[in-house]
Design a protein around this nucleic acid. Structure first.
Lengths: 196, 196
DNA sequence: TCAGATATGTTGGCACTGCACACATTATCT
DNA sequence: AGATAATGTGTGCAGTGCCAACATATCTGA
């Protein structure tokens, strides 16, 4: 480690670790995301990340927080404008499931690994996605109590994603998964069925 | 290991491993469920389990299959009779979420850990729970296409369980969680809202 | 009955992991 | 400029999954 260009200090090792962890998630499917592998990829000694993360869970938490931000962005891209109809809900759901299927390891890290619950970054990212869903439900179903409805919608979409991800449904074709998601949404939110 | 009563052969090490793994899941919260710890608890050498499980994932799969059977049993106990009303759905949902919150590590193993997808035992256990839900939906909503509805119901309930498990909602009181689940269910399945 | 074959358990070892500790180097502040 | 804090390095320990060689019990067929 004594190339002329390389300096002893990395510069922004914390961000580099999160980035390396994300790459490892995409490649090795999650099981390969060890602290040591992250350090290796960042070109740094095996224990250097400990200066920025208390333990492995803290790193995972940071990666998960990034994943939440990616997810909200992905959902917003699937349906930009706030005034949503109940039809747009299906688009959001499909986007949610697609995210899970396209980046399974990241999705698992976000929801299935035990994370440090005291992570502020994580809590903020979750609050953002929850807020997005609330505003969506509010504009899609005006006049309804948004609280339980938002909970139900999030759960429905989240459950669809997880069941697909765990192979409970056939996902050989993306179109197939999308169709199932759509029909499941329509089964509950057909136009005549959303009035209180 | 040379007590007079102990024999070289264990008798039914496979079952003993699954049992030991379940106990470790309840105690150490999942992270402690290593193959070696399982072997230790079964009173056997560290590599003995390899005679019965190809690798760690195979053990996990067997444990998960047991968990699926436990879950179906738990659900059936919450609502024994097949002819279900849409009201009973809430009971089932609450039972589902309770199972997840009461045995979080087991629930995670069942749904969040990568398992051997070729496990017949696992597939059968999943088919059983899926069938149970289908029959429930069929009798609760006669005249509807049960396929997408069953998917939606499972996803909704499953999502509720996972979001609670991951701390997305407050679960300090079991009653609180149960109430939220009930109101989420009612938000989607109020009597007037279930006709297509 | 009693050798083999087969199933099952044991021991030792390897590469890997998370993490604690002491140490080295650099940036920053007074 | 010199002290001090921040950051990165090296070593080491306990634990892990898994492989290979070996030991022991059970089963099988002549």
């Amino acid at each position: 480690m004594s190339q002329p260009g390389a300096s002893y200090h990395h510069g922004d090792l914390r961000a580099a670790c999160v980035r390396a962890a994300r790459e490892l998630l995409e490649e090795d499917g999650g099981s390969g995301m060890s602290l040591r592998a992250v350090a290796r990829r960042a070109g740094v000694s095996p224990t250097a990340p400990y200066r920025h993360f208390a333990d492995r869970d803290a790193l995972v938490s940071a990666v998960a927080a990034q994943g939440y931000r990616d997810l909200t962005e992905h959902l917003a891209a699937a349906h930009p404008a706030p005034p949503a109809t109940s039809d747009d809900l299906a688009d959001i759901a499909v986007a949610y499931v697609r995210f899970a299927l396209d980046r399974p390891a990241m999705f698992r890290v976000m929801f299935a690994e035990p994370c440090d619950p005291a992570s502020e970054e994580r809590a903020a990212a979750i609050a953002a996605i929850s807020g997005y869903l609330h505003s969506l439900v509010r504009s899609a179903f005006p006049g309804c109590d948004p609280e339980p409805l938002a909970t139900a919608v999030w759960a429905l979409v989240h459950g669809l994603a997880f069941l697909h991800l765990d192979g409970k449904f056939d996902t050989s074709t993306p179109q197939q998964a999308a169709d199932r998601v759509r029909s499941a949404i329509y089964a509950l939110f057909s136009p005549a069925s959303t009035t209180p």
